[in-house]
């Protein structure tokens, strides 16, 4: 049924820290690695070693340059995967019931056996979180690694999404955002976690932590006590140096 649940008991999702993400794309690779051999159809590539390689990914990292009105520009790396929206427009447009949001934990999934590959859900998602697989002709999206987080065959430390487990700079956090006491909820509260495109009314579960202002070399105060002694001695050389200066000028 592609009607949305009125309420989900938990809201499992990710908190992504734009301050610490270094843009290494490790989460992109680990996501592709895990998900190409687990839930559903593999994530195919087309022309992978040719001139125009293209493929299906569930997680991608953009990079933006932010230029403040004064001071140095800042580079922000921006990972983006499905935000498991509470008010997911991708679910309600699906004609077959293949797209659904789980009542128990809020994860948005695609039942690939029922997907007719119409692509309408990808149109409805404002974030570009859904990609049609060109080989399997079904819609692929982030599963929040549903086959890891409940998987008792894995050591407990691995029962988190592949991208979270891999991230070397701890920029991705996984947890229940419906529980105000959870570590992720506290992180969101402490760091001012935000929604992407709030005006679209999707009520995303995933939150983004804004980057802090980086060190500003151009604005740092000079506190070097020797600095006055290193200032240029004179602008107007006298004596021999003055004569040389003028002579060279005249040449």
């Amino acid at each position: 049924m592609t009607s949305l649940p009125t309420h989900t008991q938990r809201k499992l999702g990710l908190v992504i820290d734009l301050d610490t993400c270094v843009g290494c794309h490790a989460c992109v690779v680990s996501c592709k690695g895990w998900n190409t051999e687990n839930y559903g159809a593999p994530l195919s590539d087309q022309d992978p070693y040719g001139a125009e390689p293209s493929g299906t990914f569930l997680n991608r990292v953009h990079s933006y340059e932010v230029q403040p009105t004064d001071g140095a520009a800042q580079l922000v790396h921006f990972p983006k995967s499905c935000l498991h929206c509470d008010n997911a427009p991708c679910v309600t447009v699906c004609p077959t019931g293949a797209s659904y949001k789980r009542q128990e934990d809020g994860i948005v999934l695609v039942n690939e056996d029922a997907c007719i590959g119409c692509g309408l859900c990808a149109w409805a998602c404002p974030y570009g979180a859904r990609e049609m697989d060109m080989a399997a002709k079904v819609m692929k999206k982030c599963t929040l690694c549903v086959d890891r987080i409940y998987n008792e065959n894995l050591p407990e430390v691995d029962r988190v999404p592949a991208c979270v487990r891999t991230c070397p700079s701890n920029a991705r956090h996984f947890g229940d955002l419906a529980d105000p006491g959870s570590a992720v909820s506290q992180l969101v509260a402490a760091r001012g976690g935000m929604d992407l495109m709030p005006e679209q009314g999707t009520a995303p579960v995933n939150k983004y932590l804004p980057p802090r202002i980086k060190d500003r070399l151009d604005q740092s105060d000079q506190i070097d006590i020797l600095a006055p002694f290193l200032a240029p001695v004179t602008d107007q050389p006298k004596g021999f140096l003055g004569w040389l200066d003028k002579a060279l000028d005249r040449l």
């Binding site: 932010v66 520009a73 922000v76 921006f78 935000m194 992407l196 495109m197 983004y208």
Partner: peptide
């Protein structure tokens, strides 16, 4: 609004 980075510049 898409990136949430508008306040920074």
């Amino acid at each position: 609004s898409a990136t949430g980075l508008g306040a920074a510049g």
